[in-house]
Structure formats: structure tokens, C-alpha cells
């Protein structure tokens, strides 16, 4: 049989951009890092070439060349002067190239709090006064062409936020707020991944950033705001089960009495591209598999298996959740 494949390696068909290419920037903040990487790589190639040439001379060169290469002047010039000049120039170049990473964001820029949790991401869109306007999880929507400031935090251990096509990595450190700017030049979805080992299922801690045209983005956010005010109870079996099976102890659905904050917010789970924090496609089957036994899918994560529930209950819960849009 051919090599086994995995559902995660197939996510490209669910949202464009998986696995996220590291040197294919889709915005200015990833762009400068990408240019710097290529310049460093090119310099390293040149240095390697020079060193190999010197090695060639030392091994196979004539006596005259060899004695010249072994002289004091070569050591002073090639070993000390040249590196000082080249590395200083590179430092100045690198700092000026990546200056856009450190400058403050334009005033009035959209701000979002992203909190690393074991092993998912809590997302909170902030209003202009810095209060939480909307909660979400594991997926971030942004407008194309606008700089968005992320306030990166951690709720437990050190995580690292990394959406390679939009920016570099930045650690999420307990007790600190680290600011990161992201900006996407084109609409699309961009995959991310926790880049600092954070225990058990760290490798299964993914993230999705979705960039929309500004008008479309504002429509989505306005719809979500409007839905907060009026979410009529479905009255269905799934909703009753959500209460009776205890889902609401950890999960919140805005506009309902379900207000657990320990796990990911499920208010818009039906619209998400992925489940389980950027690892599974989102459909009725994967929802049922996740609810039934998330431990088999993402071993060690904090959602217990619900294999105690009858199959009908798992299906009705999945039906209820896919309606949360």
C-alpha cells in the first residue's frame, strides 16, 4: 500500500493555505521577513563559496597560493575586518528592512485579543474602547488591506502564534501581552500553527485567519452583532441535550443561557472552516466524531469523550451545533 495520508495533510481542500508555505508572504509584515530570509540565505551561499574556495586552495593549490592564504594579512582581513563590515551592514540592512514590524499600528486600527490555551485559541474582537465586542475561537476574520493588531496572551503555558503568510512568530507568555501586527493583501484563508511546544497535543493546535474584502468583513461582523441580540431558542432536541449533557459547563453560545468559558466559544461553530483547532474539516461527520470521542482524534485535549451518549444524542448535538452560524 502507498504511504499513509492524514486528514490534516488534506486540509488544503478545505481552506486554501495548508500547510502554510513559510516563504510565500501574503502581506507586508511577512514580506519583510521573507526578503530578509532570502538575503541571509544568499549571503550564506557566498560565504560558503569563499570558504570552499579557500579549502580548495589549501588542499590542491600551488605552494605560492598556499603561503599567501596562510599569511597574517588574510586572517586580519578575511577573518576579522570583512566579517565586521559585512555583519554590520547586514544588521543595519535587516533592522531597516523589518522596521515595519516594530512601528506602532495606525491609530484606530482594529484590535483582537488572541489567547493561547492548551490546545486551542481564544479570540476576542475588541471595540474602540478596548472592550470585548465578540467572542470566537480558533478562527480569525480580518479585512483585506488593513493592519490588525493582535494582543497575544496565554492562559497557561508559553505558546507561539504563527501564521507564516501574514507574519513571523511571536510567543504568547503568561502574564504578558505581546503585540503583533498582521495584514493580508488578498482575500483568502491562511493557516497557522502553535510554534512553541506546549504539551501533549501541541502539534494539533492549528489556527485559521480568513481575510475578506472590507465590505464583506463588516457585513459578517454586523451580522454577528445583530445575532447577539436575538438568538431564538431552537427548542430542538440538540439544544436540550446541550444543556443536559453538560456541554454548557465549558462552552458558550451567545444569546443563549449557555455560557461556559473554559472551552472554545461555539456561537459561530457552524461557520468555521475547521474543528478541533484547525485540524479537521467541519462537517456533520467530523462533528459527531469529535463529540463522540475527541480523545481518539486529539489525544490529551481537555474535552472528555462522550461515548456514554447514545448515537442519536450525538447526532442531534451535531445538528444543533452546525446551526450555530
Amino acid at each position: 500500500m502507498s504511504r499513509p495520508i492524514s486528514t490534516r495533510s488534506s486540509l488544503e481542500s478545505v481552506f486554501k493555505g495548508w500547510p502554510p508555505p513559510v516563504l510565500d508572504p501574503a502581506g507586508p509584515y511577512a514580506g519583510s521577513i521573507s526578503v530578509l530570509s532570502w538575503v541571509l540565505f544568499a549571503m550564506a551561499v557566498v560565504v560558503l563559496g569563499v570558504v570552499l574556495a579557500a579549502l580548495g586552495v589549501a588542499l590542491f593549490g600551488g605552494q605560492r597560493l598556499k603561503s599567501r592564504l596562510g599569511g597574517q594579512a588574510v586572517i586580519w582581513l578575511g577573518g576579522i575586518a570583512l566579517p565586521i563590515v559585512v555583519l554590520t551592514a547586514l544588521l543595519v540592512y535587516g533592522l531597516s528592512l523589518t522596521r515595519n514590524l516594530g512601528t506602532p499600528a495606525p491609530p484606530g486600527a482594529m484590535r483582537v485579543q488572541v489567547t493561547g490555551e492548551m490546545w486551542w485559541w481564544r479570540v476576542a474582537y475588541l471595540d474602540s474602547s478596548g472592550k470585548v465586542a465578540l467572542w470566537d475561537a480558533n478562527e480569525l476574520h480580518i479585512p483585506v488591506g488593513e493592519t490588525v493588531v493582535l494582543e497575544l496572551r496565554s492562559a497557561d503555558v508559553i505558546h507561539s502564534f504563527w501564521v507564516p503568510r501574514l507574519s513571523g512568530k511571536l510567543d504568547m507568555i503568561p502574564g504578558r501581552v505581546n503585540l503583533m501586527k498582521i495584514k493580508a493583501d488578498k482575500p483568502g484563508s491562511y493557516g497557522g500553527q502553535c510554534a512553541e511546544y506546549c504539551g501533549g497535543p501541541h502539534a494539533l493546535m492549528g489556527f485559521v485567519v480568513v481575510a475578506h474584502e472590507p465590505a464583506e468583513f463588516r457585513r459578517i461582523m454586523a451580522d454577528r452583532q445583530a445575532a447577539l441580540a436575538s438568538k431564538p431558542p431552537s427548542g430542538g432536541r440538540g439544544e436540550q441535550l446541550f444543556a443536559s449533557a453538560g456541554c454548557a459547563a465549558c462552552h458558550r453560545i451567545a444569546g443563549t443561557p449557555f455560557n461556559g468559558m473554559a472551552g472554545p466559544d461555539l456561537t459561530h461553530v457552524g461557520t468555521r472552516r475547521t474543528l478541533g483547532a484547525g485540524i479537521l474539516p467541519n462537517n456533520r461527520g467530523t462533528l459527531m466524531g469529535w463529540i463522540g470521542n475527541a480523545q481518539a482524534i486529539k489525544p490529551g485535549n481537555r474535552m472528555p469523550p462522550y461515548s456514554v451518549l447514545p448515537a442519536d444524542d450525538i447526532r442531534d448535538l451535531a445538528l444543533y451545533l452546525e446551526q450555530q452560524r
Partner: peptide
């Protein structure tokens, strides 16, 4: 069949079923 395996990986059949040829996940619900 080869195409079928890719389809199964893509839509996540393995969220519930353990399927030879699909390395992850290895679901236990079905």
C-alpha cells in the same frame, strides 16, 4: 480506490473510523 482514499482523508471519515492507509485521525466512534 486510490482516489477514494484521498476523498476519505479529505472529508474526515477517520474522525469516527480507524481506516488502514489513513494515519490520522483514528476515530473510535464508529
Amino acid at each position: 480506490a486510490a482516489r477514494g482514499r484521498k476523498v476519505m482523508a479529505r472529508v474526515g471519515c477517520a474522525s469516527c473510523h480507524t481506516i488502514p492507509g489513513i494515519a490520522w485521525p483514528q476515530g473510535q466512534v464508529g
